[in-house]
């Protein structure tokens, strides 16, 4: 089969993002990862929430569903249950994923829904012009915290590991090669693959200088099957580790659900009249 060229994955819609936005790095990495994997775009669905990152599906030449704020994961589940042959990539921001939609991550994770979920994490609400988000640091001054943020940020990596995500990674939009590599692995992973992709907001919370200072690669010696060690790396306050923290193999939600269906179906489709007769 002829190779699918990289350009095939690009739509002709021009991104609305500010020049220098970290989201460009994520989009570009997605194109490269899809190309590397040679994914069939007709069987590819991008699901996004609300926020700057929510616009991403329109920039990819594939199927897209730009849903309501915070609900990418339930919609992704619906898509996968309807057609498990589709590859689903959910994208959204830290507000979309951890604030309004925070209640869905635990359930997608424990179900082990077989999708890739990329959080484009900029520690702020960019589309509403800079308010604090669940990943903002204490003391951060913003439109909604003029005297400084008093709420502690969540730890996305520890959060995802705790709830049973079977693939947990952190990436940085400024390190495109590593990001492409992680997206490729996440899509290949069978189960819920979570990537916290740090993607700075150049307009309302520019962390381009801050992030690289703390950035470090997950040590090469790290065993990704070691959950306790993965937690240690996630909780490290000195370094912001980048790379794959944790991976485990567990039956996916879709596999288990379809196995139930096949078991039920194997007994033969019930006759409508027989169902009725049970109500005599």
């Amino acid at each position: 089969m002829a190779e699918i060229p990289l350009e095939t994955y690009k739509s002709d819609v021009h991104p609305v993002w500010c020049p220098g936005c970290g989201d460009f790095g994520v989009l570009s990495a997605l194109y490269k990862a899809m190309h590397a994997l040679q994914l069939d775009p007709t069987k590819l669905v991008f699901v996004s929430g609300i926020g700057c990152s929510g616009r991403l599906p329109a920039y990819v030449k594939a199927y897209g569903f730009h849903v309501v704020h915070g609900r990418t994961l339930p919609v992704s589940m619906g898509v996968r249950l309807a057609n498990p042959e589709l590859t689903v990539v959910a994208v959204g921001g830290d507000g979309d994923g951890f604030a309004i939609g925070g209640g869905h991550i635990p359930h997608a994770a424990r179900r082990n829904l077989d999708i890739t979920y990329i959080i484009m994490d900029n520690e702020t609400y960019g589309l509403t012009k800079g308010q604090v988000s669940p990943t903002s640091q204490i003391g951060h001054t913003s439109g909604s915290t003029p005297y400084g943020n008093v709420e502690a940020p969540i730890n996305p990596i520890a959060f995802a590991i705790t709830y049973g995500a079977t693939f947990v990674a952190r990436a940085y939009s400024g390190k495109p090669k590593e990001l492409v590599d992680l997206i490729v692995k996440a899509v290949q992973h069978e189960g819920f693959a979570f990537i916290d992709a740090i993607s700075p907001c150049i307009t309302f919370y520019d962390t381009y200088k801050m992030i690289p200072q703390k950035l470090a690669s997950v040590p090469a010696t790290h065993n990704v099957k070691d959950k306790a060690e993965a937690f240690k790396l996630a909780l490290d306050t000195e370094h912001l580790y980048m790379g794959l923290f944790y991976q485990e193999s567990r039956p996916t939600f879709e596999e288990s659900v379809m196995a139930t269906v096949h078991r039920a179906e194997s007994k033969g489709m019930p006759k409508f009249d027989d169902i009725l007769t049970a109500y005599r």
Partner: peptide
């Protein structure tokens, strides 16, 4: 397939995802 979701928002979200597909 039947799925018991984490809340009603997830229920209608799952419905729309499935119907979209």
């Amino acid at each position: 397939v039947v799925v018991q979701t984490e809340d009603e928002i997830a229920a209608i979200g799952t419905v729309l995802g499935a119907s979209f597909a």
